[in-house]
Structure formats: C-alpha cells, structure tokens
Amino acid sequence: SSGGSSILDRAVIEHNLLSASKLYNNITFEELGALLEIPAAKAEKIASQMITEGRMNGFIDQIDGIVHFETR
C-alpha cells in the first residue's frame, strides 16, 4: 500500500507490540521500532494509541523516549 501500512500489517504490528509488552518491562522507541521493523516514531504512535484505547497497559515517557509496560 502506498499511504502507510495495510490493515494486516497494522494487525501484525499490534500483535508483536503486545508480545513485546509481555517480554519487556520497558523499551526505547528505537529498540521497539527495530523489533517491529518500523520507524521509531511510528512505534511510538501505535504504542500510544493502543495504551490510550486501553488495549495495552503502560505509559510513555516522551522525555526519555521509552515505553513502560505495566503487567495486568
């Protein structure tokens, strides 16, 4: 797709992000992006959206560029 990722790509990214949230206590956007094979800024945006929508527990430290995952 030309304008970003398809629905399937997005679903795969979100699935992998949720998997990462179970493996890590926290991770930088750079590391997360590398893990998900997407730019760091996109990793931040998707993580932020999932947390806001209540689909993933955690919070974002924008100063240090880190996602902190919280286990249920």
Rank of each mutant, 00 (worst) to 15 (best):
G3Q: 13
K22P: 04
A47N: 00
R55M: 07
S48R: 14
I60C: 02
A47T: 10
P39R: 03
D9N: 06
I46R: 00
T52D: 13
A11F: 09
S1K: 12
G3F: 04
S48E: 10
E53G: 06
N16L: 15
L18Y: 05
A43C: 07
N57T: 11
S48W: 09
K22Y: 08
M56E: 01
G4Y: 01
T52Q: 14
A34Y: 11
E31S: 07
L8K: 13
Y24A: 04
I7G: 12
S48D: 08
A43N: 00
L17R: 03
P39T: 12
L17V: 06
E31R: 07
A40R: 05
K42H: 15
A11S: 09
L18D: 04
E70S: 06
R55T: 06
G54E: 05
P39L: 05
L23W: 08
E53I: 05
F59M: 08
S21V: 10
I60L: 05
E70H: 10
R55I: 07
G58Y: 01
L35S: 03
G4D: 13
Q49H: 06
K22L: 13
A41R: 09
E53W: 02
V67M: 09
I51E: 01
T28R: 04
L32Y: 00
S19W: 12
N26I: 10
G65L: 05
E70Q: 10
D64A: 15
R72D: 12
D9C: 06
I27K: 04
A41F: 08
I51L: 07
E37R: 13
E31W: 06
I38Y: 02
G4L: 06
E37G: 15
R55A: 05
H68A: 04
L36N: 01
E14P: 01
I66R: 15
G4T: 12
E37M: 13
I38D: 00
V12E: 11
N16Q: 12
D64I: 11
G33R: 02
G33C: 04
N26A: 13
R10C: 10
S19A: 15
R72M: 12
A40V: 08
P39H: 06
Q62N: 11
E14S: 03
F29A: 02
V67R: 01
M50S: 01
G65F: 05
E70K: 07
Q49A: 09
G54I: 02
F69C: 03
I38W: 03
Q62G: 09
I60N: 01
R55W: 05
S1V: 11
Q49C: 07
S5M: 07
D61Q: 05
A40N: 04
E44G: 13
A40C: 06
I46S: 02
S19C: 15
A20Y: 15
G65M: 07
S21P: 02
F29T: 03
R72C: 12
T71Q: 12
Q49D: 14
R72A: 14
E37S: 14
H15C: 14
Q62C: 09
L35Q: 04
G3L: 11
K42F: 15
R72H: 13
E53P: 00
Y24T: 05
A34T: 09
H68W: 14
K22G: 06
G33Q: 02
G4N: 11
N57L: 10
L32E: 00
D64Y: 14
I66Q: 06
V67C: 03
E30A: 11
Q49R: 09
N57Y: 08
H68P: 01
S2T: 14
Y24K: 05
H68D: 05
A34M: 11
A43P: 00
L36F: 05
E31V: 07
L35E: 02
N57R: 13
L17H: 02
F69A: 01
I63A: 13
Q62S: 12
F29N: 00
L35A: 04
R72P: 14
Y24V: 07
I66K: 14
S1P: 12
F59N: 05
R55G: 03
A47R: 00
L36A: 03
E31P: 00
F59I: 08
L17W: 02
E14T: 03
S1Q: 11
M50G: 01
Y24I: 07
K45D: 11
E31M: 08
I51S: 00
S48G: 09
Q49Y: 04
S21A: 11
G4F: 02
F69N: 02
L8H: 11
V12Q: 13
N57D: 10
I66M: 11
S2Q: 12
S48K: 12
E30K: 09
S2G: 11
F29Q: 00
L32W: 02
K42D: 15
E53R: 05
A11T: 10
L23P: 02
I7A: 13
S48Q: 14
G4M: 08
G58M: 03
A41Y: 11
S6I: 13
I7F: 12
A11K: 09
D64N: 15
I7E: 13
I46D: 00
E70W: 08
K45L: 14
M56H: 01
I63T: 10
A47Y: 03
P39M: 04
A11I: 10
Y24E: 03
K42E: 15
D64S: 15
Q49N: 08
K45Y: 10
E53M: 06
K22W: 06
